[in-house]
Amino acid sequence: MWKEFKDFAFKGNVLDLAVAVVMGGAFGKIVTSLVNDIIMPVVGFFTAGTDFSTLKYVLSQAVMDGETIVTPEAAILYGSFIKNIVDFIIIAFSIFLAIKFINKAKKKKVQEPEKAPEPEPVPQDIKLLEEIRDLLKNNK
């Protein structure tokens, strides 16, 4: 199942991509809420109360003139990036499961082709007549 998920998430085809776009749009807000409101607080609890939305690496501090920002802070928001990665994994896995379900349903729908009906057995008297005919041909 993991190999199939990797193949889907990183290779995929056009149908998979189209479904991913639709599903991602439909589930985007739900997944974002799940990550922001349920998963990340639990992760934060286990990482000594870290709030991932505030994690950043400051490249340069903001320059202030009183309360006015002259130059805004330049920072890499890696906490937000981590949240987005979790969002992507959940959405990609959901779409993978949906495609897997669709493919399974398609396989069930396709049935084996019907076998040709078996020919009716030849009556015994016809068999005897055919044997006599063959014997007469061979005696000539």
Score class of each variant (00 low, 15 high):
residue 1 M to D: 14
residue 2 W to N: 08
residue 5 F to T: 03
residue 7 D to H: 11
residue 8 F to P: 01
residue 8 F to A: 01
residue 8 F to Y: 15
residue 14 V to C: 04
residue 14 V to F: 14
residue 16 D to N: 15
residue 21 V to S: 12
residue 24 G to Q: 03
residue 25 G to C: 09
residue 26 A to E: 05
residue 29 K to N: 12
residue 32 T to H: 03
residue 33 S to R: 12
residue 35 V to A: 04
residue 36 N to E: 12
residue 39 I to T: 04
residue 42 V to H: 09
residue 45 F to P: 01
residue 46 F to S: 05
residue 49 G to S: 07
residue 59 L to A: 07
residue 60 S to K: 15
residue 60 S to A: 15
residue 61 Q to Y: 05
residue 63 V to R: 10
residue 63 V to P: 07
residue 64 M to Y: 15
residue 66 G to H: 07
residue 68 T to Y: 11
residue 68 T to G: 08
residue 71 T to S: 06
residue 71 T to P: 02
residue 79 G to L: 05
residue 81 F to D: 14
residue 85 I to M: 14
residue 86 V to C: 03
residue 87 D to Q: 08
residue 88 F to Y: 12
residue 91 I to S: 11
residue 94 S to D: 01
residue 103 N to M: 02
residue 105 A to S: 11
residue 110 V to M: 09
residue 111 Q to Y: 02
residue 111 Q to A: 11
residue 111 Q to S: 14
residue 113 P to L: 10
residue 117 P to H: 01
residue 117 P to E: 14
residue 125 D to W: 13
residue 127 K to R: 07
residue 133 R to W: 05
residue 135 L to H: 07
residue 135 L to R: 15
residue 135 L to P: 01
residue 135 L to Q: 14
residue 135 L to F: 05
residue 136 L to Q: 10
residue 136 L to M: 06
residue 137 K to H: 04
residue 138 N to R: 12
residue 138 N to T: 14
residue 140 K to G: 09
residue 140 K to P: 03
